[in-house]
Design a protein around this nucleic acid. Structure first.
Length: 595
RNA sequence: CGGGGCGUAGCGCAGCCUGGUAGCGCACAUGGUUCGGGACCAUGGUGUCGGAGGUUCAAAUCCUCUCGCCCCGACCA
C-alpha cells in the first residue's frame, strides 16, 4: 500500500471530544470516525486492526475445534419472550417494529438464536460436544457510551456457545475457552488477569472476565498476590468463610447532639472529633418498588450488587434526595437507624456493624446526630450480611493475606450457563439411557473492537500508537526521504518485496518533508520502520527501526527485506511464546485446574 | 436519570459580555525557494456562525425552544 493512494488522514490537533488516550490516537491516526453517539466507522487503518484481532480470535477458536457460523443481528421478539429476556433485558435491548407490526430487536447477544438453531437439530447425546461461534456486529443501547470504541453502542464481538451433554463435559468446554481466551489476549500483547465475575444479564453461575490491566479501566479488580485470588470488586467478598465477629451487646443512653451543617461522614467526624470508623452511616435505597436502609461503618462503601442479591431484588439504587427527606423527615445527611423502622421495608447491615458499640449516627433530624448509640437502640430486625465494597488492604478471603486493587478493561467474559436457556427454550436431547434432558451450555464473548482500543491503551507513547505486532494494521512502514529517483526506486522495490511476502506494508511516498513523515510513522505505530534515503543509499544501506525501540540498525540494501522479515518473525514468535505460556498457566491462575 | 461544558471553514480556536453583516492557526490548491524529526514566501478557495422561532432598522452576538456532542456523577446520608 502506498500512502499517496491510501485513505489515511492523520491530524496534529487533538480532537476535543476525546479525552482517553486510545480514543485520541484512533482519531488522530485516522483509524475511526464517529457517525453518532457510540457508533463509529472504521477506516482502513482501523479496520485492518479490527480484522487482525478477529484473525487471531478465529485462529485460537478454530484451534479448539469450535466452528464459525453467522447468525442474524435482527432477531424476532418471540425467542426473547421464551427466555423472559424481552422484559428483563431492559433498555439496552434496542427494539423496533416492522411494517407488519411485528416486534424485533437488534441483537446485543445471541443465546436465544443459537439455542433455537441447536434445538431444531440436536436429538441425541451423540450429537453434543460442540462449540459454535461468530464474529459480528452487536448493538447495545448503552445509557452512556464513552471513550470512543472502548464503550460504544455498536461494536464487533466474537461470541461463542458451547453445547454439552453433562456438567462435566460443559466444564471442560468452559476451561477450553478460558485457555483459548488467555492465548488470544497474550498474542495480542495485552497484559491481563482473569477474574471471577458477576453473570449480569446473561445469567449462569460461574463466570470469569478477562480484564486488561490499565488505570483508565472502568472495572476494579481485587487481587491477592499471595494466593493468586482475583475477582471483580462487584463480587469480592469482604469476609472469608467462617470469619467470626463478636456481636456487641452494649447498651446505654444515647444523646442527641447538634451538628450544624455536618452532612458527610468527614464533616461529622471532624465536628465531633471522632474517627470515621466510630460513625455508622445509614444509606437509603430504592429497588423500584420499596425503600430499604443499609447500615455500614462510616469509612466504608456499599456494594450495591451485593445488597440487591441479599434483598432478593434485581437492582437497587440510592434513594433520591426527595425520598430521603420524606423518609427521614430531615435534610439529606442526617439519616439514622434509630426510628427508621417502619419507614423502610427492610434494614440490612454490613457484618462489621455487629461489633460497633457507642457509635455516632444520624438522628433523622436536620443538623443533629446521635452519640453513644448502640444496635440495641434499633427496635427493628436488622439482618447482617457482607454488603461492603472491598478496598485496598482488606484481607484476602481465601488465604488471609492482603489484597490490592487494580483497574481493568473487560476484554472478554466466559459464562457457564448450565441449562438456564436450554430449559426455557426446550433444547433437549436423549441421553444414553433414553432420558430427555436439557443441554448444558456455556457462552463466551470477546470484544473485538474493544481489544483494538485496549491494545492502544496499553501500548502508546507521547508520539502515537505502538501496535502489538499481531494487531498492527501495517507491520512495516517505509519512509522515503529525499526526492531522488534512486530513493523512489529502492523504496518501491523493498515495498514490493515485502508485500509479495504477504506482509502488510505501507510506503510513505508522499512528497513531504522528512519530519512530517517520521511523525506520521510514529503516530501510525507500525512495529517496524524502514528509512530509505539518499544518505543511506550512498552507502548502500537502509535503516531499520522497531517502534518499541527494541531494534535500531542499518542493513545493506540487498538484505534489507530478509532482515525485516527476520525481525517481524521474532516479534510473532514472541507473541506465540507468550500465548503458550499464559495458555498453559491460566487454569492454575484461576483455580479452575482443580474443578 | 442528575450536574457541568461545548456547537463559528476539513481540524483546533477567537469574536458574543458592550448587536453594525466573520477572523486566526493548521490543513487544502497553485507557483517558487527548501528538504533526515511537523520549513518559508507569495497567491487563492472554503462558512446556511448546529436548527427553528422571537426582539431589533440591523443578530454569530440578546431572548425562547430544539437538536447534537463531550465530561462528571449516580457512595452525600
Amino acid at each position: 500500500m502506498r500512502y499517496t493512494s491510501a485513505f489515511i488522514y492523520t491530524t496534529r490537533d487533538v480532537p476535543k471530544e476525546a479525552t482517553m488516550t486510545s480514543h485520541v490516537l484512533l482519531l488522530r491516526a485516522g483509524c475511526v470516525r464517529m457517525l453518532s453517539k457510540g457508533i463509529y466507522s472504521y477506516l482502513p487503518m482501523g479496520y485492518r486492526a479490527v480484522n487482525n484481532v478477529a484473525r487471531v480470535v478465529r485462529e485460537e477458536m478454530d484451534r479448539t475445534g469450535a466452528q464459525e457460523i453467522l447468525m442474524p443481528f435482527v432477531q424476532p421478539a418471540g425467542i426473547w419472550r421464551e427466555t423472559g429476556r424481552w422484559d428483563s433485558f431492559g433498555a439496552e435491548l434496542l427494539r423496533f417494529t416492522n411494517r407488519e407490526g411485528a416486534e424485533y430487536a437488534i441483537g446485543p447477544t445471541h443465546e436465544e438464536v443459537v439455542t433455537d438453531i441447536v434445538r431444531r437439530e440436536v436429538r441425541s447425546y451423540r450429537h453434543l460436544g460442540f462449540n459454535l461461534y461468530q464474529i459480528q456486529t452487536k448493538y447495545r443501547d448503552e445509557p452512556r457510551p464513552r471513550a470512543g470504541i472502548l464503550r460504544g453502542r455498536e461494536f464487533i464481538m466474537k461470541d461463542a456457545y458451547s453445547f454439552d451433554a453433562d456438567p462435566d463435559a460443559a466444564r471442560r468446554s468452559y476451561k477450553t475457552m478460558i485457555v483459548a481466551y488467555a492465548r488470544v489476549m497474550a498474542r495480542l500483547g495485552l497484559t491481563f488477569r482473569a477474574v471471577q465475575a458477576d453473570t449480569g444479564a446473561i445469567g449462569g453461575d460461574l463466570s470469569h472476565e478477562f480484564q486488561i490491566i490499565t488505570d483508565s479501566g472502568e472495572d476494579i479488580l481485587v487481587l491477592c498476590d499471595g494466593c493468586g485470588y482475583a475477582v471483580n470488586v462487584e463480587l469480592a467478598p469482604a469476609y472469608g468463610e467462617g470469619w467470626s465477629c463478636e456481636p456487641s451487646t452494649a447498651s446505654g443512653a444515647y444523646e442527641k447532639v447538634h451538628t450544624p451543617g455536618a452532612h458527610t461522614v468527614g464533616e461529622v467526624a471532624s465536628f465531633l472529633k471522632v474517627a470515621p470508623t466510630d460513625i455508622m452511616k445509614t444509606v437509603l435505597l430504592f429497588d423500584g418498588d420499596n425503600f430499604h436502609a443499609a447500615l455500614l461503618r462510616g469509612d466504608r462503601e456499599l456494594n450495591l450488587l451485593k445488597v440487591s442479591r441479599k434483598l432478593g431484588v434485581r437492582e437497587v439504587f440510592l434513594a433520591g434526595d426527595d425520598d430521603v427527606r420524606r423518609i427521614t423527615k430531615a435534610d439529606v445527611g442526617f439519616a439514622g437507624p434509630v426510628g427508621i423502622e417502619g419507614q423502610v421495608k427492610t434494614i440490612v447491615a454490613d457484618r462489621e456493624v455487629q461489633a460497633m458499640a457507642g457509635f455516632v449516627c444520624g438522628a433523622n433530624e436536620t443538623d443533629h446526630h446521635l452519640r453513644n448509640a448502640n444496635l440495641a437502640d434499633i427496635r427493628a430486625n436488622v439482618a447482617f450480611f457482607d454488603l461492603r465494597k472491598v478496598t485496598e488492604g482488606d484481607r484476602c478471603p481465601r488465604c488471609g493475606g492482603q489484597v490490592h486493587t487494580q483497574k481493568g478493561i473487560e476484554g472478554g467474559q466466559a459464562f457457564y450457563l448450565g441449562t438456564l436457556y436450554s430449559q426455557k427454550m426446550g433444547a433437549t436431547f436423549l441421553d444414553a439411557d433414553g432420558v430427555t434432558r436439557p443441554i448444558e451450555m456455556g457462552c463466551y464473548g470477546i470484544g473485538v473492537t474493544r481489544l483494538v482500543a485496549a491494545a492502544i491503551e496499553q501500548h502508546n507513547d507521547g508520539k502515537g500508537i505502538i501496535w502489538p505486532v499481531e494487531v498492527a494494521p501495517v507491520k512495516v512502514h517505509i519512509v522515503s526521504v529525499g526526492a531522488s529517483i534512486d530513493v523512489a526506486r529502492e523504496a518501491g522495490r523493498i515495498h514490493d518485496g515485502i508485500e509479495a511476502a504477504g506482509i502488510q506494508v505501507l510506503l510513505d511516498d508522499r512528497p513531504e518533508r522528512p519530519g512530517v513523515k517520521f511523525n506520521d510513522a510514529d503516530l501510525l505505530g507500525a512495529p517496524v520502520r524502514i528509512v530509505v534515503g539518499d544518505r543511506g543509499l550512498a552507502k548502500g544501506i537502509v535503516e531499520i527501526k522497531a517502534r518499541d525501540g527494541s531494534v535500531d540498525e542499518t542493513a545493506p540494501l540487498d538484505s534489507a527485506i530478509d532482515r525485516v522479515k527476520a525481525v517481524l518473525s521474532s516479534f510473532f514468535e514472541a507473541s506465540l511464546a507468550r500465548a503458550d505460556e499464559r495458555g498453559a498457566a491460566i487454569l492454575r491462575e484461576t483455580g479452575l485446574e482443580r474443578t
